[in-house]
C-alpha cells in the first residue's frame, strides 16, 4: 500500500511525521464539485485514508444516497482497500440510504440521525473505544431531494451531526454539488454549510478547456490555520489532478509529466 503523501494530503495537513493520517477530529470537510468535474475521487481518497491500516484504526460511518455498496467496494479495492472485510470487522459501517424518502416532514431525517447517533455512541463506548470516527455523506444534494427540497431539514441534520463532532470528536465529510443552485434561490444552503465547515475542497474543470493530461483543478481551503507568527490564517492550495485507473495524480500547474 502506498502511503507516500501527495499534494492533496499535504494541503489537508496529513503527514507521516505527525502520524496524522486522517482528518483532525472535530473538523468538518466539504467537497464541492460540479457536473464537468466530479469530486467523488476526493471522497474515495478520504475514505481510504480514514480506513487504511497501519496509519489509522478509524471507523467510517458512510451514509450513501448516491451509490450502492458494491460501487464503493470496487473502487476502493483497486486502491488496495477491501471494504467488504472492513465492513465485517465493523470498521466500515455502510448506511444504504438509496431509498431514503421523507415526503411528509422530518421523521425520516430524525430516524436517520438516531441511527447515526446510536452507531457513534456504540463505537465510542468503552467496549469498542474507537475515537477516530468519520461520518461521510454522499451526497448532500440527494439528501435534499429525499426531503423533497427542504434544505432546512438537511441543515437540521447537519447541525445534529455537528453536535456529534463537538461531543464525541467525530469528523464529518460531506459531498455536494455547487452548480445545481441558481444564484437566486438557494445559495443559502451551500453558504450555511460553508459557514459550518473547516475545510472546503473544490473541484473545477480547467479554465482553459479540456486537456488529455489534466482532468481538472483542485482548490483546498483550510480555515483558521495558525501560522508561524501565531496569526490565524486561511490557507489555500491550488493544483491540478489527473484521475488514473487506480490512483489519482496531483501536480502543480505546468509540472505534469
Amino acid at each position: 500500500m502506498n502511503h507516500s503523501s501527495n499534494l492533496l494530503d499535504e494541503a489537508l495537513g496529513f503527514n507521516r511525521e505527525s502520524s496524522q493520517a486522517s482528518i483532525t477530529p472535530g473538523r468538518i470537510v466539504l467537497i464541492e464539485d460540479c457536473v464537468e468535474t466530479s469530486g467523488a475521487f476526493v471522497l474515495h481518497h478520504l475514505l481510504k485514508r480514514a480506513l487504511s491500516p497501519p496509519l489509522s484504526s478509524g471507523v467510517v460511518l458512510f451514509v450513501a444516497l448516491a451509490n450502492p455498496f458494491s460501487h464503493y467496494d470496487r473502487i476502493l479495492r483497486k486502491q488496495g482497500c477491501n471494504l467488504a472485510t472492513l465492513r465485517e470487522n465493523g470498521r466500515f459501517l455502510f448506511f444504504d440510504m438509496l431509498k431514503l424518502d421523507c415526503p411528509d416532514g422530518i421523521e425520516g431525517v430524525v430516524e436517520l440521525f438516531h441511527k447515526i447517533q446510536k452507531t457513534v455512541k456504540v463505537c465510542s463506548s468503552p467496549e469498542y473505544n474507537r475515537s477516530d470516527i468519520t461520518i461521510m455523506i454522499d451526497d448532500i444534494s440527494l439528501m435534499e431531494v429525499a426531503t423533497h427540497g427542504s434544505s432546512n431539514y438537511v441543515l437540521d441534520l447537519l447541525h445534529y451531526c455537528h453536535t456529534l463532532t463537538s461531543e464525541i470528536g467525530c469528523s464529518l465529510v460531506l459531498l455536494s454539488h455547487s452548480d445545481i443552485y441558481s444564484s437566486m434561490t438557494a445559495p443559502s444552503l451551500m453558504l450555511q454549510i460553508e459557514h459550518l465547515t473547516d475545510v472546503v475542497i473544490k473541484t473545477d474543470p480547467l479554465a482553459t478547456g479540456l486537456a488529455t493530461d489534466v482532468h481538472g483543478q483542485l482548490t483546498v481551503l483550510n480555515k483558521e490555520i495558525v501560522d508561524e507568527h501565531g496569526t490565524l490564517k486561511n490557507r489555500i492550495h491550488n493544483f491540478h489532478f489527473k484521475v488514473k485507473e487506480n490512483s489519482v495524480e496531483y501536480f502543480y500547474p505546468g509540472s505534469c509529466n
Binding site: M190, V200, T219, L221, K223, L232, N234
Partner: peptide, 15 residues
C-alpha cells in the same frame, strides 16, 4: 459573486 467565489478569496483577507 457567488458563495464559492467569495470563500476562495478568503486568503487575501486572512487574519
Amino acid at each position: 459573486k457567488g458563495s464559492s467565489e467569495n470563500i476562495f478569496s478568503l486568503e487575501q483577507n486572512s487574519g
